[in-house]
Write a protein that binds this DNA or RNA. Structure first.
Lengths: 227, 227
DNA sequence: AGAGTTTTATAAGAATTAATTAAAGAATAC
DNA sequence: GTATTCTTTAATTAATTCTTATAAAACTCT
């Protein structure tokens, strides 16, 4: 989970970063709104924590700009305790509004609540579609479209391909692949089950093991699919 | 929009009702948790405002019970200002936590923010009529019209078809289907109840299991109805 | 180059999972 | 209270998918 933190008060931003990192969130920290706007399309933000009072572009403006394109949750954390500010903040598209000084644990709890609402309760996530290099794989419809042709995959084939696509560009260790697909540890007796499935996948993708275009073997490690 | 308000302090509940009614929300007001549980399946709640400290079933318990079946936003409004209570409340499934005394306008703003998140940003449409590909299914009247012919469905058949239609295009896992129709977990001994109902549905839709036009089997996963 | 290791290919049997029946059990309506 | 309809269970059959075993090929290292 990637969380955007924007606050011109460095100490506060740093503090929030510590709390969030501690909970294993990945934090993109900015002391200036302007830089956020340059980068935001590149980052895949899941939630934003914004300060209100900042130079040049204030939190409310930033929130409005973000909302033109994105629907991830936005939480204001600010020293402005006036009710009218809370109401404005929530009205322009924020999901929550916390006033400083705040309890770290409360902030974390609110972050978690928002992420739960956004990710778990909300079924419309495009996290379930991966699209690259003529490959479109959709975990909702269980469809695999390869070079504009729909291809039927079995459950196991789909799981393996899904796992490789999620980690596209990176090697997936045979063991990790096994864990991901079967959800258990293997490596008792020799197991070439995965190889058989990989072969089937390559077959369906008109790929060869000699010079594979898609699923490459990384000797002694596992498999990877190029980005 | 239907809002559930539960508070054993009548004055507070009445006050909240006034604010909400003023904003043209429809309010279901309860002074007792028990009655809520009796009625909740009949009401079509979009958001709930719960007090924490109540006799017999407290707000936290009520929240947990609601969350077993529903994902609409829940806001706690309570005199308990302890941080640990806020954190617990948010952890068990609430979306926001406001402490008494609260500003009416802030409450309204938070209600609106939650509803916006739930309704607007969340694309999952919960209309009661779904119409596509010669299928018209109406969850209010429980009517099913297939290629201009009304077709009688039993309660279970309707629930299954409704669930598939709501997720049309996407695979519905057998387990999820079970959860949705029977509202409980199964997976004890194997259970082909669903298969029998699916067969009946296909029969009524003049469909076959070999080359189904409508309800397709996704091996090892579940069923889906094409968009 | 050769020994040892790891991956690939192939095919067949094993194991899963789904569909079909028929009938018993439960719920509902009359 | 009985009849009817609906739901579930159970047993069987059918279809699909997974695993195993084997042999062959490719790679690594000395």
């Amino acid at each position: 989970m990637n969380i955007l933190v924007v606050d011109d008060e460095k100490e506060i931003a740093d503090l929030i970063e510590i709390y969030l990192t501690n909970e294993n969130y990945h934090v993109y920290k900015y002391y200036d709104s302007k830089n956020v706007l340059n980068d935001i399309d590149k980052l895949k933000i899941d939630l934003a924590i914004l300060d209100v009072m900042m130079p040049t572009i204030d939190g409310f403006q930033l929130c409005s700009i973000i909302r033109e394109k994105y629907t991830f949750p936005i939480i204001f954390v600010t020293a402005k305790v006036e009710d009218i500010d809370k109401i404005s903040g929530l009205s322009i598209g924020a999901d929550d509004y916390i006033t400083k000084p705040f309890q770290p644990l409360e902030l974390i709890a609110r972050v978690k609540a928002q992420l739960r609402r956004y990710k778990t309760y909300n079924k419309t996530n495009d996290d379930n579609i991966i699209d690259f290099r003529g490959i479109t794989i959709n975990n909702d419809t269980h469809e695999f479209i390869f070079e504009d042709e729909p291809i039927e995959l079995t459950k196991t084939e789909f799981s393996i391909l899904w796992c490789l696509c999620q980690n596209r560009g990176n090697v997936v260790k045979t063991e990790d692949l096994f864990m991901n697909v079967w959800g258990e540890k293997y490596f008792e007796n020799d197991n070439n089950t995965i190889m058989v499935h990989i072969r089937h996948l390559r077959e369906k993708m008109h790929d060869t093991s000699k010079i594979p275009k898609y699923i490459k073997t990384v000797w002694g490690v596992g498999y990877k699919i190029e980005k």
